[in-house]
Deep mutational scan, measured.
Amino acid sequence: AGSTTLRAVGKLQVRLATKTEPKKLEKYLQKLSALPMTADILAETGIRKTVKRLRKHQHVGDFARDLAARWKKLVLVD
């Protein structure tokens, strides 16, 4: 499952970095939220930084902030 999640995170990371349409960004964040994330995947992909960049986004900022905070707890636990 780890390598599958890693690939999925990579694809979503590229999309988050290149797309600007709020509905698409929200969809990608929801998909990321549903993935079985680990501290290793967060470290290897840097996805948390990508998501943190969206914290001030008018439409998806709250979602991005919550997701980044949830992942921060995951990193602190591991």
Rank of each mutant, 00 (worst) to 15 (best):
A8S: 07
F63S: 04
K52C: 14
R70W: 00
H59C: 10
V77N: 11
S33H: 00
Q13I: 04
L54S: 01
L67W: 00
K56L: 13
T20L: 12
S33I: 01
K73F: 05
V9F: 00
I47E: 01
E21W: 00
V75R: 06
K72D: 14
V9Q: 03
V9K: 00
V14S: 11
A39T: 07
L67M: 10
K19A: 15
K24N: 13
H57S: 08
K24G: 04
G46D: 04
A8H: 06
H57G: 01
K23H: 13
T20A: 10
R55Q: 14
K11T: 12
K49T: 14
G2S: 12
A68G: 03
A69S: 08
L42F: 05
R15K: 15
K11N: 13
R48D: 15
T18G: 11
A8F: 13
V51G: 02
V14D: 15
I41F: 00
I41A: 05
V14Q: 13
K11H: 13
V51A: 02
A39P: 12
R15M: 15
G61C: 01
H57W: 05
D40M: 15
P22C: 07
T18D: 14
A17N: 14
T45C: 01
L42T: 07
T4Q: 11
Y28P: 01
L12R: 01
L74Y: 04
D40S: 10
A68W: 11
T4H: 09
I47G: 03
D62W: 04
K72H: 01
L76G: 12
A64E: 02
T50V: 10
A8M: 11
A69N: 11
R53C: 13
D62Q: 10
K11W: 04
A39R: 08
K11R: 13
M37D: 08
V77S: 13
V75Q: 10
H59L: 11
L6G: 06
T4K: 07
V9W: 03
T45F: 02
D62P: 04
L16N: 01
K19N: 15
S33V: 04
D66R: 06
K27T: 10
G2K: 09
L12G: 02
L74F: 07
W71T: 01
V51N: 00
V51T: 01
E26G: 05
R70G: 04
T5A: 03
P22F: 10
Q30F: 09
Q30T: 05
Q58R: 11
V75E: 14
D66W: 10
T5P: 08
L32P: 02
I41E: 03
E26A: 08
A68H: 03
R70S: 10
P36R: 05
T50N: 04
L74E: 08
K19V: 15
D66C: 08
D66F: 08
K23Q: 12
T45A: 01
L32G: 01
T5Y: 07
A64I: 02
W71N: 03
R55K: 07
D62S: 06
E21G: 08
R15F: 15
Q13G: 08
L25K: 00
A64S: 01
L76M: 11
R65Q: 09
Y28T: 13
Y28Q: 03
R65A: 12
L35P: 06
I47P: 00
A1S: 11
Q13F: 03
P36W: 06
T18F: 08
K31E: 15
V60N: 02
T45N: 00
A43S: 08
Q58E: 12
A17G: 12
T45D: 01
R65D: 06
K72E: 11
K73N: 11
R48Y: 14
L67F: 00
A1E: 15
T5V: 10
I41H: 02
E44F: 05
K49R: 09
K52A: 13
T50M: 11
L76S: 11
R48C: 14
K23S: 14
D78P: 09
V75F: 13
R7E: 15
V60R: 00
G46L: 05
L32D: 03
R48P: 02
G61F: 13
A34P: 01
D66Q: 09
K31V: 14
L6H: 07
D62E: 12
L16S: 00
T20Q: 10
V75L: 13
T4F: 07
F63R: 05
L35S: 03
R7P: 01
A1Y: 15
K73R: 06
R70I: 01
L12E: 04
L32A: 03
R7Q: 14
S33R: 06
A69D: 12
G61H: 01
K73Q: 13
K19E: 15
K49D: 15
L35G: 02
L25E: 03
V77H: 10
L12I: 12
R65H: 10
L16C: 05
